[in-house]
Design a protein around this nucleic acid. Structure first.
Lengths: 350, 350
DNA sequence: TTGTGTAGCGAAAACGTTTTCGTGTTAAAA
DNA sequence: TTTTAACACGAAAACGTTTTCGCTACACAA
């Protein structure tokens, strides 16, 4: 087992100085053709590669991006990572991933671990617990130390940074309007509690669609699910809540669900109660994941373009990193990019 | 925007040497109570954190693990990452992710980028293209340079390293035996071409189950799908192939599919052809993902315990890393851990 | 007085680079 | 022959740590 070869070793073997080796490898004109060839041949033979860590230390930048997301077993977040990774690699950056598991503490710890020189900047989506506690000091501290952050999807306005978001309100509105124009008279929404920012916004879109069509939303048609029920362990409880919704509102003929799981569960319950999809009940879900595409009936969904979000976020971050290099201390002006949603029509609507 | 504070700056402010500051912060007894307090107070005030990169350079280890997987938008791989991340963090390591996108070149490039000092070791699952080309030089080179690798799921025996695998043969066999004992007489398998190692092994399990029950596998019941058809763009082609399978074998009453997508597609096609699940056709799928659980009917599956695989892989790697520290150059003896599968019974079987 | 021990601190090396600034050698110009 | 310029290379600093070793000053014993 041979250790990785360094400049020093090459220098010693060839009986030249470290500087000469370094310059020879970088094709400096200072070095004679002769020694250059010799050094390069030797380096190739021993498969020399500059040590990244040493470079990072010297250049005071790591060419690495830190990602903090609430969870990774999640179609949307995976897609975002794919997008980030794609442009990061293309632009010469690596990607390091931290999971918060929706926990405030883990989010803080993870950020601290990475912020001490390991990375040049963050791309993150805020954990639910953090959103609930509204404690954002770790974000502001990081930014104050000169490390840029780009937030996506779950963001808060208080933090001065670039953001990439989905137009949740508009996307939800489009979905509900689709249901309306498809003839639904009693459209329910299955959403999350309000502290989840995207849930709140999608609920808002639902309400706006009603307003625009001079309809009056009935409180009993708005089901706000406690977050815990998203986990697989609480599937039963989720089904019960949805069943209750149907039973106390017999005339429901449209469902807008803020995620796939709520949608497929609603369909499952509805079928049990004897409703036909899409004849007597039409369903639209937010988030276009694997369930939407492959379950039966396939779901009409609001597609979020997760990969595109990731790509945009990475571009924003890297732009800022490479801009900081040149013009230090320009007026900090932050951008919020909105990625439009599409409505993908499938079998769960007429 | 204040830069991160360093030992040097603290030393200058307090008019002591860098060594003194370093020692004071690490509670060395060499330093007087007085200066220790002073330094620690100052450090706390300015929120001093040692620079990770400098530490990595000095210690010649990064406390970071590199993961290379074929794709991340995939339930199984996400689960594995969750597991790796869990134990890595618990043991003080970070995780850096590279995606090969099933491409040989990207796998090689990614490994080269990370191997130059950025990480201490790899956990990886081999891309399909690499498996097809059977070119493993980048693995052996990495290992020869003293960087340990742990492979999971898609592994090859030629490479001397620790491995964590699913017992694909046994899992598949259990699934097929379940179908047999449930009364199926004509069991087909939908699998991949043989160069995908796990596909091949699962096919082998299918054959072994037949053998053990003195049954004779019919070639026409074995459908080996060309890999490209896994992508969403080729869904139609996939459906056609499966439809063909049913049409030329009217008596099929059991399907074993090596992944979820094949399973749900088979169900879709079967229904179109008028078959009832599970009454006239029973289906079992490998991989317990979100589709299995939430599609209708839910799928009976062979669960792979992805998270557990990740945890085990991380433990193996870190053990080796921290063992290398102490006893250099012991006899290299590698472990292959087999994670047992479970059969989860759901609605797609009787 | 001299020697010994110890408390408290600093200098410097090391990790592996890159880059600036010398410096010596040689060939060409004066 | 002397000056100059180009050429080819090396020394050293810097990035931020940790750690070994040495040094100074002082207290105490002989």
């Amino acid at each position: 087992m041979k250790r990785k070869v360094t400049l020093k070793q090459i220098a010693k073997e060839l009986d030249v100085s470290i500087s000469t080796v370094s310059k020879a490898l970088r094709n400096s004109i200072e070095i004679s053709e002769d020694t250059r060839q010799k050094v390069q041949a030797f380096a190739k033979l021993y498969n020399y590669r500059p040590n990244n860590i040493a470079l990072s230390l010297k250049n005071r930048k790591t060419k690495t991006i830190g990602i903090i997301i609430p969870e990774i077993v999640h179609h949307f977040f995976s897609k975002v990572i794919t997008g980030i990774e794609l442009v990061a690699n293309k632009r010469g950056y690596n990607v390091i991933v931290g999971l918060s598991n929706e926990s405030f503490d883990k989010e803080v710890i993870n950020m601290q671990m990475l912020a001490n020189g390991s990375i040049d900047g963050f791309i993150l989506s805020i954990s639910k617990e953090t959103l609930q506690q509204q404690d954002y000091h770790h974000f502001t501290e990081t930014i104050n130390q000169g490390m840029p952050i780009v937030m996506f999807d779950r963001v808060v306005n208080e933090i001065p940074c670039d953001k990439v978001i989905v137009d949740d309100v508009k996307g939800a509105k489009k979905a509900v309007e689709k249901l309306i124009s498809n003839g639904c008279k009693n459209i329910a929404i299955i959403t999350t509690k309000d502290y989840v920012s995207v849930g709140k916004l999608r609920t808002q879109g639902y309400l706006e669609a009603f307003e625009e069509h001079k309809l009056h939303p009935k409180a009993s048609l708005i089901l706000k699910i406690e977050d815990k029920l998203l986990s697989d362990d609480h599937l039963d409880a989720l089904e019960k809540e949805i069943e209750q919704l149907f039973k106390s509102n017999k005339s429901i003929d449209g469902i807008f669900a803020v995620n796939e799981l709520y949608a497929v569960t609603a369909i499952k319950v509805a079928r049990k109660l004897g409703l036909e999809i899409p004849e007597s009940l039409q369903v639209i879900s937010f988030t276009d994941g694997v369930l939407s595409k492959h379950s039966t009936p396939s779901l009409t969904t609001v597609r979020q373009h997760g990969q595109q979000i990731g790509e945009k976020a990475a571009d924003l971050l890297i732009n800022r990193l490479e801009l900081d290099e040149t013009e230090e201390e320009e007026e900090e002006i932050y951008e919020t990019v909105v990625i439009e949603t599409d409505l993908i029509e499938r079998e769960s609507t007429k």
